[in-house]
Amino acid sequence: MQKQQQITSKLLFRHETILFIIMIVFGVVVNSINPAFLKVENLFDILKTSSITGMMALGVMVVMISSGMDISFTAIATVSMGVTVRMLIALDKGNIVVAFLVAGIIGALLGCINGFLVYRFKLPTLIVTLGTSSIFHGLLLSILKIPYLYTVPGYYSDFSRLSLFTFTTADGAVVGFSYLTVLLFVMACVVWLILRFTMVGRGIYAIGGSIEAAKRAGFNILFIQLFIYSFIGFVSGVASIEYVVMFRHVHPFNMMNMMNMMLNVIAAVVLGGTSINGGTGTVLGTLFGVWMIYMITNSLILMGIPSEWESVVIGFILILSIGVNAYQKSLRKVEVKIIES
């Protein structure tokens, strides 16, 4: 009896479950205002457009699990996007796979610098990445002088049109399941596998739980830190090419000018249940967090909300859903205490 109770209460208090319920409720409300919302077509589109944010969110989640914070990822993305696309054009060859790889590697290398600084000087990660973010972006713009690029090779846009499968809906629209979404899912699986089944993954959680204990247990902290920060660099690089694929241009500000974007990614990760203090976080929760935020921002027109009300509505829903989550968390604490005693 008691055990059963415990199990149900655990399920009820699982972060992902709560988030899922909020998403469903929100979806149903929007759908009742405009039935276009819950159409497969719209859902697939949300999956596709959210894939860039989702990709970066995975990286941010990994960093946050290790109780760090990286705010240089948008700068890294901008740099790897600019350098990669330029370089491949200059070399006059390359294809989409190479682009993804090159951007990923450039991102990973830049991330390594973060990781090294964090490890070597034991500096707060926020400071390091705040610093390197202006260094990276500043160097890109002033030394490499990457200008705007509005025409990119065809393989980028070709990839954007590729779909894993397509079908025709009742009202005749052709709906495709984009490869960008597939890429996000693949990356999510990879992260899940790494976190769950490898020693590096355990090391990331261990550092987040207690870096001192991790050191004593014999984890190679340098390696793990380098892995964490080059991983977020890598996914930022990949995300930057996704950006080129979707929007067919290279822009030194759009990705970077996104202080909003950066904060949105961090908000999504935290909303997804990753603790700011490190140690906890799940892939599923992070994806839910990203989708939740995307659902909010991408249903305002459907709901017919005037533009000047947008910020109010987003702010309000954000506070509401985060508030519900925070409240539920404090409930869990009480619950644990009672079970314990």
Binding site: L263, A267, I276, W309, S311, V312, I322, A326
Partner: peptide, 27 residues
């Protein structure tokens, strides 16, 4: 209030109100 009573992490609470205040000003 959001930070102390509702116990939302400050970075999130103020991210939300950042949009909210901006929104009210826009309205």
């Amino acid at each position: 209030f959001l930070v102390a009573k509702v116990k939302i992490p400050p970075i999130l609470a103020t991210l939300g109100t950042m949009r909210l205040y901006e929104g009210i000003a826009l309205v």
